[in-house]
Design a binder for these strands. Sequence first.
DNA 1: GTCTATAGAGAGATAGAC
DNA 2: GTCTATCTCTCTATAGAC
Lengths: 196, 196
Amino acid sequence: MARTIGSHSDITGPRVREAALTLFARHGYAAVSMRQIAAEVGVQAGALYNYTPDKQSLLADLLAAHMDELLVAHTAETPKNSAPTDALEHFTRFHIRFNAARADAVFISYMELRNLSAENFGRIEALRRVYEGRLEAILRAGVASGAFDIPDPKITALALIAMLTGVNTWFREAGRLSLAEIEEIYWGMVRKTVAV
Amino acid sequence: MARTIGSHSDITGPRVREAALTLFARHGYAAVSMRQIAAEVGVQAGALYNYTPDKQSLLADLLAAHMDELLVAHTAETPKNSAPTDALEHFTRFHIRFNAARADAVFISYMELRNLSAENFGRIEALRRVYEGRLEAILRAGVASGAFDIPDPKITALALIAMLTGVNTWFREAGRLSLAEIEEIYWGMVRKTVAV
DNA sequence: GTCTATAGAGAGATAGAC
DNA sequence: GTCTATCTCTCTATAGAC
């Protein structure tokens, strides 16, 4: 990769995070060296330290940014005051669509938590619990209104999220099913799971 | 850890695999050194090479052994000629119970596939597909008999396995729910998911 | 079968020139 | 802001003594 002398902080910064995300997802955090990331970006390893204090912070920032984006997008796209069934359908479709568009970030969000410091781990986990809490709230509202029959809303929330996130392990753009078809199938399963 | 001079191949071998399993699950394959494994066992790093040709084979053997155990146990414990609903209930309970008892092995089976050579990866994946195929066959039999209503048995098989395996991410022996209660809740969800 | 010692490669991070 | 050079450490794997 060609490079020029001079100032590139506005370009190089995002490229570093992008390269780290891709490489961490493909080979794992511990297996990727700073030199590999630098090579992908087209700089020398030392230059990376203009953008991150160390390797661990690079990972933590990627995970935190992903969780932030998830919560912000979910808030922005969620209609207010929906009936529980509508809210659950929206959550289902949002989750599949959002995660399918960010396969690498979702992957490292599950795989690389153990490589975070205790403090960073706590921060990321708290954000994840907020997201899980939103689904749980939808389920509880549906139970309260009589729309859903669920013995344990917390467990059901975790079970549904695991089921939906599982799409990422096999979904391929060129596969047998389109994302729209997958949304339909999964919404059908979610709907029946909570049905009275 | 104390150690003695002499021959211990029958003891040390299993201890090496045990230590590797625990450490790989806790810190990740790439982050664990042969020295750490040796220290856990109570030998020097060089001695490990009496039990594995290299680090990669150690991982591959752990994953292959886990998948073999899974298929053997599932075959042994599965009643013959069950009605689809009974077979599905058995699969659900078996999966939860088997995986809860082997959290470390399940974890690395999902997390460390990318650290396998292409050949080892193909071998492990084939075993996994056999297991998924058994659930899919149950679902298809239920559709054929009219017991289940499922738009896409392959996708439903993957979705249910993801849901069931998700238990491992939060289940703790000392937690709010016993494994028996969890089995009940999940069987309730599975039953409704496939219901006519 | 395990030890000690080490070869050889590669890691993360820093210093100083430009 | 990036480079080159390097410090210091750790890694996998092997050799040879016991």
